[in-house]
Simulated assay, not measured.
Amino acid sequence: MSKRQVPLTAAEVAPIWTGFLGDSMANGVLRYFAATAEDREVKHILKYALGLTEDHIGFKKDLEARGEIVLPLGFSEADVNVRAPRLFSDLIMLYYVRQMGIGGTVAYSLALATSTRGDIREFFNHNLKTAAELLDRTTTMLLDKGLFMRAPHLAPAPAEKVRKEGWLNGLFGDRRPLNAVEITHLYLNTISNALGKALMIGFSQTAKSKEVREFTIRARDIASKHIDVFSQLLKDDQLPAPGTFEAEVTASTEAPFTDKLILFHTLTLTAIGIGNYGSATSASPRRDLAAAYLRLAAEVGTFADDGAELMIGKGWLEKIPGAIERDALIPS
């Protein structure tokens, strides 16, 4: 039996199916970005990222054509108006693509680790490399243009062992300073929320239905609150917090995206945020930080549930493939 005749496992179907949704959404967003970007170099990197989504979609459609998977409907040209006026600045576009690179390295690492079939592993391995390349290119461009927001610098210190249990404190009494890992997660989560807030500002200006518009406003306000929490934790140790992107959203109110794409995009960012908070919780020994991440993750989880209900109510939520419901097949 050839490797292409081996049926796809659940661990392979999951990233292919969900990845198709993400790729079809990102394809539309990137086409609009490429049409409205002003800087030639930014346009070039947007077209590179766009080409990656097209390659991903093509591979998955080939699998579907061979009868190996049924893909979701996803998003099409009808969900994007590339002729809409410019809504976001080139800076937002660059950070957006950089976040795509970060997300891609994480998602494709997991997909590669859980896949077994040769062609599927080759596909995810290639995607992992190109996601890393995308991340590297956008980081270099932001640095070259003097736009990259660096994490705080730390002075070298001698090696030292923890000598008291109070090192874990944070809820009561004296708090030790943040360590490098904790600073990193606070920095990354501040930037991701800042980018998300800017996107929500743009989405709230252009969403057509009241329900979707109110949902994006709620997302904007949650992101703003979380930015304040993370920034204050950094400032408490006299560390700089990353800047935000509100001023990088134009005053346009003409919709470049359908409400379906806006809502799905909002929920995608929400899911990424929950994952980020989980990673930060496990990597933050100081108890007040873990408590903060758990509290904020619970808030985002409730928001995600409400968003899923809204998607279902609109008839936009597609059902991911799953196990056969055997009991339903038994004659009554």
Rank of each mutant, 00 (worst) to 15 (best):
K197N: 06
A198H: 11
I201M: 15
F203A: 07
S204G: 14
S204N: 12
Q205G: 10
T206R: 14
A207N: 08
A207H: 07
A207K: 02
S209I: 03
E211M: 05
R213F: 14
R213G: 12
R213W: 04
T216D: 05
I217M: 11
I217L: 11
R218P: 10
R218T: 15
A219W: 01
R220N: 11
R220H: 10
D221L: 05
D221R: 04
A223I: 03
I227M: 03
F230N: 00
S231L: 01
Q232C: 06
L233S: 00
K235W: 09
K235L: 10
K235S: 02
D236G: 04
D236T: 08
D237K: 09
D237P: 14
D237W: 13
P240R: 11
A241I: 00
P242L: 03
P242D: 03
G243S: 07
T244M: 08
T244Y: 01
F245Y: 06
F245I: 05
E246Y: 04
E248W: 07
V249P: 05
S252K: 09
S252A: 15
T253G: 09
T253K: 14
E254D: 14
E254M: 13
A255Q: 13
A255Y: 14
T258M: 05
T258P: 00
K260L: 05
L261C: 08
L261G: 04
I262W: 12
F264Q: 05
H265C: 06
H265A: 03
L267P: 09
T268S: 15
T268V: 13
T268Y: 15
T268H: 12
L269V: 12
T270D: 11
A271W: 12
I272N: 11
I272W: 15
I274G: 06
I274Y: 08
Y277H: 01
T281Q: 01
A283I: 04
A283N: 03
S284T: 03
S284M: 02
P285R: 00
L289F: 06
A290W: 01
A291T: 01
A292T: 00
Y293N: 04
L296A: 01
A297Y: 05
T302F: 00
T302Y: 01
A304I: 02
A304N: 10
D305S: 14
G307Y: 07
A308H: 12
A308I: 13
A308V: 15
A308G: 08
E309F: 14
I312N: 11
I312M: 13
K314M: 15
W316D: 09
E318R: 12
E318V: 12
K319Y: 10
K319G: 05
P321S: 06
G322K: 04
A323M: 10
E325H: 11
R326K: 06
R326H: 08
A328H: 09
L329C: 02
